[in-house]
Amino acid sequence: MMLKRIIVIDDEPHYRELIKEFSSLISVECMSFAQWSDEIIEYADKNTLLFLDIHMPNQDGIDTLMELNRLRIEAGVVILSGAEEGVVASVMKLGEVMHLTMLGQLNKPFSIQRFKEKVAAFQADKRKYADTQLKLGALEITEQELTEFFEKGWFYPVYQPQIAPKTQTIFGVECLARLDHPDLGPISPLSFIDDLIRLELIDQFTLLLIEKALTELGPYLKKNRHVAISFNVSAMSLNRTFTSNTINLCQELGVSSGQITIEITETKAITLSEEALYSVSKLRAAKFNLSVDDFGTGHSTMMQLHELPFNELKIDRSFISKITLSSAALKIVEATIKMAQSLSFNVVVEGIETQTQLDLVSALGNCYVQGYIYSKPIPAQEFVEFSNALQGL
Protein backbone atom coordinates (compact mmCIF):
# COMPACT_ATOMS: atom_id res chain seq x y z
CA MET A 1 0.00 0.00 0.00
CA MET A 2 1.60 3.23 -1.16
CA LEU A 3 0.78 6.87 -0.56
CA LYS A 4 -2.20 8.06 -2.62
CA ARG A 5 -3.19 11.27 -0.89
CA ILE A 6 -1.93 13.95 1.49
CA ILE A 7 -4.25 15.95 3.74
CA VAL A 8 -3.09 19.00 5.67
CA ILE A 9 -5.11 20.53 8.53
CA ASP A 10 -3.60 23.87 9.53
CA ASP A 11 -5.10 27.30 10.12
CA GLU A 12 -2.04 29.04 8.60
CA PRO A 13 -2.52 29.47 4.80
CA HIS A 14 1.23 29.63 4.20
CA TYR A 15 1.82 26.08 5.44
CA ARG A 16 -1.24 24.70 3.68
CA GLU A 17 0.04 26.11 0.40
CA LEU A 18 3.60 24.94 1.08
CA ILE A 19 2.52 21.35 1.62
CA LYS A 20 0.33 21.49 -1.49
CA GLU A 21 3.35 22.71 -3.47
CA PHE A 22 5.64 20.00 -2.06
CA SER A 23 2.97 17.35 -2.72
CA SER A 24 2.73 18.37 -6.35
CA LEU A 25 6.50 17.99 -6.71
CA ILE A 26 6.21 14.31 -5.74
CA SER A 27 3.03 13.86 -7.82
CA VAL A 28 0.71 13.18 -4.89
CA GLU A 29 -2.78 14.67 -4.56
CA CYS A 30 -3.13 17.12 -1.67
CA MET A 31 -6.26 18.36 0.10
CA SER A 32 -6.02 21.24 2.58
CA PHE A 33 -8.28 22.35 5.41
CA ALA A 34 -8.06 25.25 7.86
CA GLN A 35 -9.81 23.15 10.51
CA TRP A 36 -11.50 19.79 10.94
CA SER A 37 -14.17 19.02 8.36
CA ASP A 38 -16.43 15.99 8.00
CA GLU A 39 -15.28 15.88 4.37
CA ILE A 40 -11.98 14.50 5.67
CA ILE A 41 -13.76 11.31 6.76
CA GLU A 42 -14.45 10.38 3.15
CA TYR A 43 -10.82 10.68 2.03
CA ALA A 44 -8.61 9.88 5.05
CA ASP A 45 -7.99 6.15 4.61
CA LYS A 46 -4.96 3.93 5.22
CA ASN A 47 -3.30 5.23 2.05
CA THR A 48 -3.45 8.83 3.30
CA LEU A 49 -0.79 10.87 5.08
CA LEU A 50 -2.28 13.57 7.29
CA PHE A 51 -0.30 16.63 8.45
CA LEU A 52 -1.96 18.02 11.56
CA ASP A 53 -1.27 21.33 13.31
CA ILE A 54 -1.71 21.48 17.11
CA HIS A 55 -2.63 25.12 17.70
CA MET A 56 -5.82 25.96 15.79
CA PRO A 57 -8.95 27.91 16.75
CA ASN A 58 -12.23 26.10 17.41
CA GLN A 59 -10.97 22.49 17.27
CA ASP A 60 -7.24 22.12 17.87
CA GLY A 61 -4.99 19.25 16.83
CA ILE A 62 -5.43 17.42 20.14
CA ASP A 63 -9.21 17.28 19.77
CA THR A 64 -8.76 16.34 16.11
CA LEU A 65 -6.66 13.34 17.17
CA MET A 66 -9.51 12.29 19.44
CA GLU A 67 -11.87 12.58 16.48
CA LEU A 68 -9.56 10.47 14.29
CA ASN A 69 -9.56 7.81 16.97
CA ARG A 70 -13.34 7.93 17.45
CA LEU A 71 -13.87 7.48 13.71
CA ARG A 72 -11.19 4.73 13.49
CA ILE A 73 -9.37 6.61 10.73
CA GLU A 74 -6.27 4.68 9.62
CA ALA A 75 -4.32 7.52 8.00
CA GLY A 76 -0.71 8.10 8.98
CA VAL A 77 -0.38 11.25 11.12
CA VAL A 78 2.46 13.78 11.24
CA ILE A 79 2.24 16.53 13.86
CA LEU A 80 2.82 19.84 12.09
CA SER A 81 3.67 22.37 14.75
CA GLY A 82 5.93 24.96 16.25
CA ALA A 83 4.73 24.04 19.75
CA GLU A 84 7.19 23.39 22.56
CA GLU A 85 8.82 19.98 22.63
CA GLY A 86 7.04 18.72 25.74
CA VAL A 87 3.61 19.46 24.27
CA VAL A 88 4.44 17.69 21.01
CA ALA A 89 5.83 14.68 22.90
CA SER A 90 2.64 14.31 24.93
CA VAL A 91 0.44 14.70 21.83
CA MET A 92 2.49 12.02 20.06
CA LYS A 93 2.08 9.74 23.06
CA LEU A 94 -1.67 10.36 23.06
CA GLY A 95 -1.86 9.23 19.44
CA GLU A 96 0.21 6.13 20.16
CA VAL A 97 -1.95 5.18 23.14
CA MET A 98 -4.99 5.39 20.87
CA HIS A 99 -3.15 3.16 18.34
CA LEU A 100 -3.08 5.81 15.64
CA THR A 101 -0.23 5.60 13.12
CA MET A 102 1.94 8.43 14.45
CA LEU A 103 4.86 9.23 12.13
CA GLY A 104 6.59 11.98 14.04
CA GLN A 105 6.74 15.74 13.96
CA LEU A 106 7.46 18.26 11.22
CA ASN A 107 8.78 21.42 12.86
CA LYS A 108 7.85 24.78 11.40
CA PRO A 109 9.45 26.13 9.30
CA PHE A 110 10.45 23.08 7.25
CA SER A 111 12.19 22.24 4.00
CA ILE A 112 11.10 19.95 1.20
CA GLN A 113 13.75 17.48 2.38
CA ARG A 114 12.11 17.19 5.81
CA PHE A 115 8.73 16.86 4.12
CA LYS A 116 10.06 14.02 1.94
CA GLU A 117 11.44 12.27 5.03
CA LYS A 118 7.93 12.11 6.47
CA VAL A 119 6.56 10.76 3.20
CA ALA A 120 9.32 8.13 3.24
CA ALA A 121 8.47 7.25 6.86
CA PHE A 122 4.85 6.68 5.86
CA GLN A 123 5.84 4.44 2.96
CA ALA A 124 8.32 2.52 5.12
CA ASP A 125 5.62 1.94 7.75
CA LYS A 126 3.25 0.57 5.11
CA ARG A 127 5.94 -1.68 3.62
CA LYS A 128 6.80 -2.99 7.07
CA TYR A 129 3.16 -3.83 7.72
CA ALA A 130 2.84 -5.56 4.37
CA ASP A 131 6.09 -7.49 4.83
CA THR A 132 5.29 -8.93 8.23
CA GLN A 133 1.61 -9.68 7.60
CA LEU A 134 1.29 -10.41 11.30
CA LYS A 135 -2.08 -10.64 12.96
CA LEU A 136 -2.09 -8.90 16.33
CA GLY A 137 -4.46 -9.00 19.25
CA ALA A 138 -5.64 -11.65 21.65
CA LEU A 139 -6.56 -14.96 20.04
CA GLU A 140 -7.88 -16.60 23.23
CA ILE A 141 -5.98 -19.79 22.46
CA THR A 142 -6.90 -22.81 24.57
CA GLU A 143 -4.44 -25.23 26.14
CA GLN A 144 -5.62 -27.93 23.74
CA GLU A 145 -4.96 -25.67 20.75
CA LEU A 146 -1.49 -24.73 21.98
CA THR A 147 -0.64 -28.39 22.51
CA GLU A 148 -1.79 -29.04 18.95
CA PHE A 149 0.42 -26.20 17.67
CA PHE A 150 3.42 -27.81 19.37
CA GLU A 151 2.62 -31.25 17.96
CA LYS A 152 2.16 -29.94 14.42
CA GLY A 153 5.30 -27.80 14.52
CA TRP A 154 3.53 -24.53 13.78
CA PHE A 155 5.89 -22.45 15.94
CA TYR A 156 8.98 -21.37 14.05
CA PRO A 157 11.90 -18.93 14.37
CA VAL A 158 12.80 -15.91 12.25
CA TYR A 159 15.95 -13.83 12.59
CA GLN A 160 16.80 -10.13 12.66
CA PRO A 161 20.46 -9.07 12.25
CA GLN A 162 22.29 -6.81 14.69
CA ILE A 163 24.87 -4.65 12.92
CA ALA A 164 27.94 -2.65 13.92
CA PRO A 165 27.12 0.49 11.88
CA LYS A 166 30.65 1.90 11.77
CA THR A 167 32.14 -1.26 10.25
CA GLN A 168 28.98 -2.64 8.60
CA THR A 169 29.63 -6.07 10.12
CA ILE A 170 27.27 -8.47 11.86
CA PHE A 171 27.56 -8.52 15.65
CA GLY A 172 24.60 -10.76 16.38
CA VAL A 173 21.15 -11.93 15.43
CA GLU A 174 17.95 -12.01 17.45
CA CYS A 175 15.72 -15.05 17.20
CA LEU A 176 12.03 -14.11 17.15
CA ALA A 177 9.03 -16.41 17.30
CA ARG A 178 6.14 -16.78 14.90
CA LEU A 179 3.09 -19.02 14.78
CA ASP A 180 2.16 -20.29 11.31
CA HIS A 181 -1.61 -20.47 11.73
CA PRO A 182 -3.35 -22.40 8.90
CA ASP A 183 -6.22 -19.91 8.69
CA LEU A 184 -4.72 -16.61 9.86
CA GLY A 185 -1.19 -16.94 8.49
CA PRO A 186 1.88 -15.72 10.44
CA ILE A 187 0.96 -14.68 13.98
CA SER A 188 3.00 -12.32 16.16
CA PRO A 189 4.12 -13.61 19.58
CA LEU A 190 2.21 -10.69 21.10
CA SER A 191 -0.88 -12.76 20.39
CA PHE A 192 0.14 -15.96 22.17
CA ILE A 193 2.96 -15.35 24.68
CA ASP A 194 0.54 -14.44 27.49
CA ASP A 195 -1.36 -17.68 26.83
CA LEU A 196 1.86 -19.69 26.98
CA ILE A 197 2.70 -18.09 30.33
CA ARG A 198 -0.83 -18.53 31.66
CA LEU A 199 -0.88 -22.21 30.71
CA GLU A 200 2.68 -22.75 32.02
CA LEU A 201 3.98 -23.75 28.59
CA ILE A 202 6.47 -20.91 28.21
CA ASP A 203 9.51 -23.02 29.22
CA GLN A 204 8.64 -25.72 26.69
CA PHE A 205 8.09 -23.09 24.00
CA THR A 206 11.38 -21.26 24.67
CA LEU A 207 13.44 -24.45 24.65
CA LEU A 208 11.73 -25.53 21.42
CA LEU A 209 12.62 -22.21 19.79
CA ILE A 210 16.23 -22.39 20.99
CA GLU A 211 16.58 -25.94 19.65
CA LYS A 212 15.10 -25.04 16.25
CA ALA A 213 17.23 -21.91 15.93
CA LEU A 214 20.51 -23.56 16.92
CA THR A 215 19.77 -26.45 14.56
CA GLU A 216 19.07 -24.07 11.67
CA LEU A 217 21.92 -21.64 12.33
CA GLY A 218 24.36 -24.00 14.07
CA PRO A 219 26.64 -24.41 11.02
CA TYR A 220 26.65 -20.64 10.45
CA LEU A 221 27.46 -19.89 14.11
CA LYS A 222 30.30 -22.42 14.17
CA LYS A 223 31.76 -20.77 11.08
CA ASN A 224 31.24 -17.23 12.41
CA ARG A 225 32.45 -17.39 16.01
CA HIS A 226 32.16 -13.62 16.45
CA VAL A 227 28.37 -13.69 15.96
CA ALA A 228 26.02 -14.24 18.90
CA ILE A 229 22.39 -15.32 18.72
CA SER A 230 19.94 -13.90 21.26
CA PHE A 231 16.73 -15.35 22.67
CA ASN A 232 13.97 -13.65 24.64
CA VAL A 233 13.47 -15.43 27.95
CA SER A 234 10.85 -14.54 30.52
CA ALA A 235 12.18 -14.08 34.05
CA MET A 236 9.50 -16.60 35.01
CA SER A 237 11.40 -19.22 32.99
CA LEU A 238 14.56 -18.73 35.00
CA ASN A 239 14.47 -21.84 37.15
CA ARG A 240 16.90 -24.69 37.74
CA THR A 241 15.28 -27.09 35.27
CA PHE A 242 15.08 -24.57 32.42
CA THR A 243 18.64 -23.38 33.03
CA SER A 244 20.03 -26.92 33.10
CA ASN A 245 18.12 -27.85 29.94
CA THR A 246 19.38 -24.73 28.13
CA ILE A 247 23.02 -25.38 29.03
CA ASN A 248 22.75 -29.06 28.05
CA LEU A 249 20.96 -28.25 24.78
CA CYS A 250 23.70 -25.88 23.65
CA GLN A 251 26.36 -28.44 24.52
CA GLU A 252 24.52 -31.18 22.60
CA LEU A 253 24.20 -28.98 19.50
CA GLY A 254 27.83 -27.90 19.71
CA VAL A 255 27.23 -24.14 19.90
CA SER A 256 29.52 -22.16 22.19
CA SER A 257 27.76 -20.65 25.19
CA GLY A 258 29.66 -17.42 24.49
CA GLN A 259 27.62 -17.12 21.29
CA ILE A 260 24.30 -17.31 23.15
CA THR A 261 22.65 -14.21 24.58
CA ILE A 262 19.70 -14.53 26.92
CA GLU A 263 17.52 -11.41 26.74
CA ILE A 264 15.60 -11.30 29.99
CA THR A 265 12.16 -9.75 30.09
CA GLU A 266 10.13 -8.82 33.19
CA THR A 267 13.39 -8.18 35.05
CA LYS A 268 11.65 -7.15 38.28
CA ALA A 269 10.86 -10.81 38.93
CA ILE A 270 14.57 -11.65 39.15
CA THR A 271 15.07 -9.61 42.31
CA LEU A 272 12.18 -11.44 43.97
CA SER A 273 13.08 -15.01 43.06
CA GLU A 274 15.80 -17.23 44.48
CA GLU A 275 15.41 -19.55 41.48
CA ALA A 276 15.92 -16.70 39.02
CA LEU A 277 19.00 -15.41 40.84
CA TYR A 278 20.42 -18.94 40.83
CA SER A 279 19.74 -19.22 37.09
CA VAL A 280 21.35 -15.96 35.99
CA SER A 281 24.40 -16.78 38.11
CA LYS A 282 24.70 -20.26 36.55
CA LEU A 283 24.22 -18.95 33.01
CA ARG A 284 26.89 -16.26 33.34
CA ALA A 285 29.25 -18.70 35.04
CA ALA A 286 28.76 -20.94 31.99
CA LYS A 287 29.78 -17.95 29.76
CA PHE A 288 26.31 -17.20 28.39
CA ASN A 289 25.65 -13.50 27.72
CA LEU A 290 22.84 -11.85 29.68
CA SER A 291 21.00 -8.87 28.23
CA VAL A 292 18.55 -6.44 29.81
CA ASP A 293 15.77 -6.39 27.24
CA ASP A 294 13.96 -3.10 26.53
CA PHE A 295 16.02 -1.06 28.97
CA GLY A 296 14.31 2.14 30.04
CA THR A 297 10.82 0.65 30.12
CA GLY A 298 8.93 -1.57 32.49
CA HIS A 299 10.85 -2.80 35.53
CA SER A 300 14.50 -2.54 34.48
CA THR A 301 16.42 -0.43 37.00
CA MET A 302 19.92 0.89 37.65
CA MET A 303 20.18 -1.26 40.78
CA GLN A 304 19.67 -4.42 38.72
CA LEU A 305 22.59 -3.47 36.49
CA HIS A 306 24.71 -3.34 39.63
CA GLU A 307 23.41 -6.46 41.40
CA LEU A 308 22.89 -8.86 38.49
CA PRO A 309 25.52 -10.25 36.08
CA PHE A 310 24.33 -8.58 32.87
CA ASN A 311 26.85 -7.79 30.14
CA GLU A 312 24.51 -6.34 27.49
CA LEU A 313 21.83 -3.68 27.44
CA LYS A 314 19.14 -3.21 24.79
CA ILE A 315 17.69 0.26 24.36
CA ASP A 316 13.98 0.06 23.65
CA ARG A 317 12.52 1.17 20.33
CA SER A 318 10.12 3.51 22.14
CA PHE A 319 13.06 5.87 22.76
CA ILE A 320 14.47 5.50 19.25
CA SER A 321 11.18 6.41 17.60
CA LYS A 322 11.40 9.81 19.32
CA ILE A 323 15.06 10.79 18.91
CA THR A 324 14.41 12.75 15.71
CA LEU A 325 11.58 14.62 17.44
CA SER A 326 12.82 15.18 20.96
CA SER A 327 16.22 16.40 22.13
CA ALA A 328 15.35 14.95 25.55
CA ALA A 329 14.90 11.46 24.08
CA LEU A 330 18.21 11.77 22.23
CA LYS A 331 20.00 12.84 25.42
CA ILE A 332 18.51 9.90 27.33
CA VAL A 333 19.78 7.48 24.68
CA GLU A 334 23.22 9.13 24.72
CA ALA A 335 23.43 8.97 28.52
CA THR A 336 22.34 5.32 28.51
CA ILE A 337 25.00 4.36 25.96
CA LYS A 338 27.72 6.16 27.94
CA MET A 339 26.61 4.52 31.20
CA ALA A 340 26.55 1.05 29.62
CA GLN A 341 29.98 1.53 28.08
CA SER A 342 31.40 2.64 31.44
CA LEU A 343 30.18 -0.72 32.80
CA SER A 344 31.78 -2.56 29.84
CA PHE A 345 28.36 -3.62 28.55
CA ASN A 346 27.60 -4.18 24.90
CA VAL A 347 24.78 -1.90 23.76
CA VAL A 348 22.16 -2.91 21.18
CA VAL A 349 19.80 -0.22 19.94
CA GLU A 350 16.62 -1.68 18.47
CA GLY A 351 13.97 -0.18 16.26
CA ILE A 352 16.25 1.71 13.84
CA GLU A 353 14.14 2.35 10.75
CA THR A 354 15.47 5.51 9.08
CA GLN A 355 18.85 6.83 7.99
CA THR A 356 18.41 9.84 10.27
CA GLN A 357 17.94 7.59 13.30
CA LEU A 358 20.97 5.53 12.29
CA ASP A 359 23.16 8.61 11.86
CA LEU A 360 22.12 10.04 15.23
CA VAL A 361 22.70 6.79 17.12
CA SER A 362 26.01 6.06 15.37
CA ALA A 363 27.32 9.46 16.48
CA LEU A 364 26.59 8.72 20.15
CA GLY A 365 29.25 6.05 20.64
CA ASN A 366 30.06 2.42 19.95
CA CYS A 367 26.86 0.42 19.80
CA TYR A 368 25.10 -2.15 17.66
CA VAL A 369 21.83 -1.53 15.87
CA GLN A 370 18.86 -3.64 14.93
CA GLY A 371 15.89 -2.66 12.80
CA TYR A 372 14.16 -2.48 9.47
CA ILE A 373 16.77 -0.13 8.03
CA TYR A 374 18.91 -3.24 7.62
CA SER A 375 16.44 -6.10 7.59
CA LYS A 376 13.04 -7.26 8.75
CA PRO A 377 12.96 -10.61 10.65
CA ILE A 378 13.74 -13.25 8.03
CA PRO A 379 14.07 -17.06 7.71
CA ALA A 380 17.41 -18.74 8.43
CA GLN A 381 18.57 -19.13 4.83
CA GLU A 382 17.79 -15.50 4.03
CA PHE A 383 19.75 -14.41 7.10
CA VAL A 384 22.78 -16.45 6.01
CA GLU A 385 22.56 -14.92 2.53
CA PHE A 386 22.26 -11.44 4.07
CA SER A 387 25.34 -12.07 6.20
CA ASN A 388 27.34 -13.42 3.28
CA ALA A 389 26.42 -10.42 1.14
CA LEU A 390 27.48 -8.05 3.92
CA GLN A 391 30.83 -9.86 4.13
CA GLY A 392 31.21 -9.80 0.36
CA LEU A 393 31.08 -13.59 0.09
Rank of each mutant, 00 (worst) to 15 (best):
E274K: 10
T354Y: 02
E74M: 12
R198A: 10
I6W: 01
I73P: 01
E17I: 11
G365S: 09
E307C: 06
M236P: 02
S318E: 04
V384S: 03
L50T: 13
A228H: 07
A329M: 03
L50A: 05
P57D: 14
G351Q: 15
S257G: 09
G86D: 01
K322E: 05
K116Q: 10
I247S: 02
L313D: 02
N245P: 11
S321L: 03
T206M: 05
Q133A: 10
E200Q: 02
A235R: 05
E200D: 04
T167G: 03
F150C: 04
S281F: 11
M56A: 14
R114K: 14
F155M: 01
P57H: 14
V292D: 03
N58V: 15
F386S: 08
I41G: 04
L272W: 03
K118A: 06
G185D: 04
I62Q: 13
I320G: 02
M236F: 06
E353N: 12
T356G: 06
I41A: 05
F310S: 14
T215S: 10
G95W: 08
T356S: 08
K331L: 11
K126Y: 08
M66E: 12
S256K: 14
A164S: 12
I141Y: 13
Q204L: 04
K93M: 11
R198K: 09
F386C: 07
Q105W: 15
F288R: 03
L71H: 10
L390A: 04
A177E: 00
H306G: 11
G86F: 00
D38A: 13
K126T: 11
K46G: 13
L139W: 00
N224K: 12
G258Q: 15
E307S: 06
Y278L: 08
L199G: 13
E174T: 12
L201M: 14
D131S: 05
P165Y: 09
T101E: 11
T64G: 06
I62E: 12
E382K: 13
L201F: 12
I229Q: 00
E307H: 10
L277T: 10
K116S: 10
G137Y: 04
L176D: 01
S291M: 13
